[in-house]
């Protein structure tokens, strides 16, 4: 049995403050990695019940307002935590969801849960070159799906590779997401528009159109509809607005790129 496992089933009773501080950190991390409100609600309630607490949450786009109380006792604690912008990560989402089940089913102590939680946050790293390669191949495949020929696919592959690498570099320098979308769409569309010079009789318009598709903010769009169905209207509207703004930045970059290359849209 590992050191952390020795905390299991300790039967220790925690104050509402201790539980609330952990659950707030957990909620912020889960929300930041693009979990839906229904998942956040379920995971938090599952863990709170395992610690013998009752929880009420108010999920706002930038903050999570949480109150934890001990039923039947005068022990209540409220905490408001800020959501930190973080990259979308279903890997972290999966591990955090697994943690909530471990707390509920295996009776993990708060200390063990906190230890595992912090370990998960530290371990959530991407492998940039693998992602870059797969994203480039994916966008080239897109070009093929939409009817692009082999040369158009090759151009999209290069446009995506350069644009995506730029996106990674700008993100590591903490550049604003909207600027990243604009700049990357501009660069990729300029490279994509070279298809009009290299293969004018082929499918150059498909190459330009698909060269920026790797930037489409699909997950915020999907999550906004999920929140809408779960009646989290403020979060749904916020995620939708975020996605629309990013799409507008993408479109602006695409438009400028095409203007620079004197490429018509039809």
């Amino acid at each position: 049995m590992s050191n952390s496992d020795s905390h299991k089933l300790s039967g220790k009773r925690y104050t509402s403050k201790e539980v609330c501080l952990f659950l707030s950190d957990y909620a912020v991390a889960l929300f930041g990695c693009a979990a839906t409100c229904i998942r956040l609600d379920r995971n938090i309630n599952r863990m709170a019940a395992a610690f013998g607490k009752k929880v009420e949450m108010f999920i706002m786009p930038r903050h999570i307002h949480m109150t934890v109380c001990q039923p039947g006792e005068d022990d209540t604690f409220t905490y408001i935590s800020s959501v930190r912008p973080a990259p979308i990560s279903f890997s972290l989402n999966t591990r955090l969801s697994q943690l909530s089940w471990h707390v509920a089913d295996d009776g993990l102590s708060l200390e063990t849960a906190r230890h595992r939680f912090e370990h998960m946050l530290q371990c959530d790293k991407e492998t940039p070159w693998v992602t870059l390669t797969l994203a480039s191949l994916a966008n080239a495949s897109f070009c093929g799906i939409f009817g692009g020929d082999a040369i158009a696919m090759l151009i999209v592959l290069v446009a995506t590779a350069i644009g995506f690498r730029l996106k990674q570099l700008m993100a590591s320098c903490h550049v604003d997401g909207r600027v990243i979308f604009f700049v990357c769409a501009f660069i990729s569309s300029v490279i994509g528009a070279s298809a009009f010079i290299l293969t004018p009789d082929g499918t150059p318009s498909i190459a330009v159109g698909t060269s920026v598709l790797y930037l489409v903010p699909g997950i915020p769009f999907l999550n906004s509809f999920s929140d809408l169905l779960y009646r989290h209207y403020i979060c749904a509207f916020s995620r939708f607005t975020d996605a629309v703004i990013l799409t507008a930045c993408l479109s602006l970059g695409l438009c400028l790129g095409m203007k620079l290359m004197s490429v018509g849209m039809f």
Binding site: A34, I88, S89, L137, A138, F142, I145, Y214, I219
Partner: peptide, 10 residues
Amino acid sequence: AAIGFGSISR
């Protein structure tokens, strides 16, 4: 395409 976009969303 799905595998590539899966890798983007980790």
